[in-house]
């Protein structure tokens, strides 16, 4: 593959910079890929730490969890039970409750958050907005707050008797609202908390994309007499498409795995009104010690995520003017770890 393949270079790796280049006076080549011009082993050496860590701390645990999903703890003995856990899942009303709740939050929260994100990004991108750097920051900082701090803070804010949210609403004659203790309002609380947490992050991604839309497009549209809405509809939105696909897919995955918010705010209640699939998995594994079943839920969830993501890619691709590569840039999603 390579003219340079001297034996000395075959051992070269990230630490081998001192190895003398024996073929220095090589004629310059202009190839598109830089893969010409390096030893075969180089990429593997760069990937070595990732591969080792991946095998040990990702692949093995996931395979082990899959095996676990085929077992059950019967009287203290781990027993192979085949697909029993998966069959049990199909007949488990609570699993469907969790799926339904997750779907509902998905359908309400993701569009709301993404729409707000677009509005914010357009505002951040507008010269009319004063103090843009500060505002960008203000909307982004919620993401720095970790699970525990977030839980402590929001439980205190949304407490239905002593919380400041009801206190403030009281001044304008609203409430008190039973935020975390009513099946309906608990869902709303989760939606509010998630929107608070992640909207700024999405706005920043849109902003980045917006800045790549050529200004001439807008100027031309203005000359043609297009109004603000028309420009938004015909230039901004299509221009945002790659970022939209990215955020839709990642937010969907994040929401389908939703765990943090119900975990810290409602514990899945009241009466399972905010039980998500992620919560149900956790409860079975870590409250009831039923790891086989919990793993089965995890793999069922993975299949659901894969199917939903594929559908989203398909939809976006069909409506796009030209096919969009699947290899999309990703977003800051600490959630998806």
């Amino acid at each position: 593959m390579n003219v340079l393949s001297s034996t000395a270079r075959a051992t070269a790796g990230p630490t081998a910079e001192a190895v003398p280049l024996d073929a220095a006076p090589r004629p310059p080549r202009r190839r598109r890929r830089s893969s010409i011009g390096h030893p075969r082993i180089t990429p593997y050496l760069f990937l070595l730490p990732t591969i080792v860590l991946f095998l040990g701390f990702k692949l093995y645990p996931y395979l082990s969890a899959f095996w676990t999903s085929l077992t059950s703890n019967i009287g203290g003995v781990i027993t192979f039970v085949g697909l029993d856990n998966y069959l049990r899942l199909l007949n488990d009303p609570l699993f469907y409750t969790a799926l339904g709740n997750t779907a509902l939050i998905l359908v309400v929260q993701v569009p709301l958050m993404l729409a707000l994100g677009i509005v914010l990004a357009v505002a951040f991108n507008s010269l009319l907005l004063k103090g843009r750097a500060f505002f960008r920051m203000a909307f982004f900082v919620p993401i720095v707050m970790g699970l525990v701090a977030y839980g402590i803070l929001f439980s205190a804010l949304f407490d239905s008797s002593a919380g400041i949210v009801n206190e403030l609403l009281g001044y304008v004659g609203i409430g008190p609202i039973p935020w975390l203790v009513d099946p309906f309002w608990a869902k709303i609380s989760i939606v509010i908390a998630m929107t608070w947490h992640y909207t700024g992050q999405n706005a920043i991604i849109y902003l980045a994309q917006l800045q790549s839309i050529p200004g001439e497009l807008y100027e031309a549209a203005q000359v043609d007499g297009a109004n603000g809405w028309q420009r938004f509809r015909n230039i901004t939105l299509p221009g945002l498409r790659p970022a939209l696909l990215l955020t839709v897919v990642l937010s969907t995955i994040g929401t389908l795995q939703l765990f943090d918010e119900p975990y810290v705010l409602t514990n899945g209640g009241p009466d399972n009104a905010t039980l998500t699939v992620g919560m149900y998995l956790y409860q079975n594994g870590f409250k009831y010690f039923d790891f086989g079943y919990a793993s089965a839920i995890g793999y069922a969830l993975t299949v659901i995520i894969a199917v939903v993501s594929l559908i989203q890619f398909r939809l976006f691709r069909e409506r796009a003017p030209k096919p969009i590569s699947l290899k999309k840039p990703t977003s800051p999603k600490e959630k998806t770890r």
Partner: peptide, 28 residues
């Protein structure tokens, strides 16, 4: 920046870990 055997597979594996809920790996 490199083309090599197994690139698609390895990158695909990295992608897949995004879809798997991390709670599943806690016990292992």
């Amino acid at each position: 920046k490199f083309e090599f055997r197994g690139r698609g597979l390895l990158f695909g594996a990295v992608l897949v870990t995004l879809a798997l809920p991390s709670q599943v790996t806690l016990v292992p």
